[in-house]
Amino acid sequence: MGAEGEPIVVGVIEDHPLYRAAVARVLADAPDIELGVVADSVGRFAAGRQRPDSVVVLDLKLRGVQDAAAVLEVVGMGHKVLVVSAHAGQAEVLGAIAAGARGYLSKDSDGDEILRAVREIAIGNSYVSPTLASFVLNSSRERHTGPKLVLSDRERQVLSLLAAGERDQDIAEAMNITVRTVRSYLDRIRDKTGRRRRPELTRLAIEEGIAHRAD
Rank of each mutant, 00 (worst) to 15 (best):
R116M: 11
L186E: 06
E166C: 09
R51I: 11
Q157H: 12
R190D: 03
D40M: 11
G194F: 00
A133S: 13
I177Q: 09
E34C: 10
V37C: 08
A91Q: 11
P7G: 07
D108R: 14
F135K: 08
G36M: 03
E4W: 09
A214I: 04
V42A: 00
A101Y: 00
S139F: 06
I123A: 10
D153V: 14
V182P: 00
A211E: 02
H16S: 09
R102L: 10
L94Q: 05
A88C: 11
A46G: 03
I97E: 00
G103C: 12
I13L: 05
L132M: 09
D110H: 12
E155Q: 15
R196C: 00
A68T: 13
N125G: 14
I114W: 02
S106Y: 04
M175I: 11
V83A: 04
K148T: 13
I210A: 04
S85Q: 03
A96N: 02
S184D: 11
E113G: 07
V56E: 03
L82F: 09
E166D: 11
V128C: 06
H87V: 05
K107P: 02
I123T: 15
A164N: 07
T131N: 13
Y19A: 14
V81Q: 00
D67T: 11
L105M: 08
S41A: 14
Q157C: 05
A24D: 09
V65T: 15
L35S: 09
V83Q: 01
A117F: 04
A205S: 13
L62W: 04
K80F: 11
H212I: 10
V93Y: 03
P17R: 06
R156C: 13
E14D: 13
R102Q: 13
T131W: 06
R203W: 08
G43K: 05
A22H: 10
D59C: 05
V84N: 01
K107D: 06
S184G: 14
L161V: 10
E113K: 09
L105D: 02
K192H: 05
R44S: 14
G124F: 07
L186H: 02
I13V: 15
L35G: 12
V57R: 01
E173C: 03
L58Q: 05
V75F: 06
Q90D: 10
A101D: 02
E73V: 13
S54K: 08
A30V: 08
S54Q: 08
V150L: 12
D53R: 14
L159Y: 04
V118L: 08
G43S: 10
M77N: 02
A47H: 10
A24S: 15
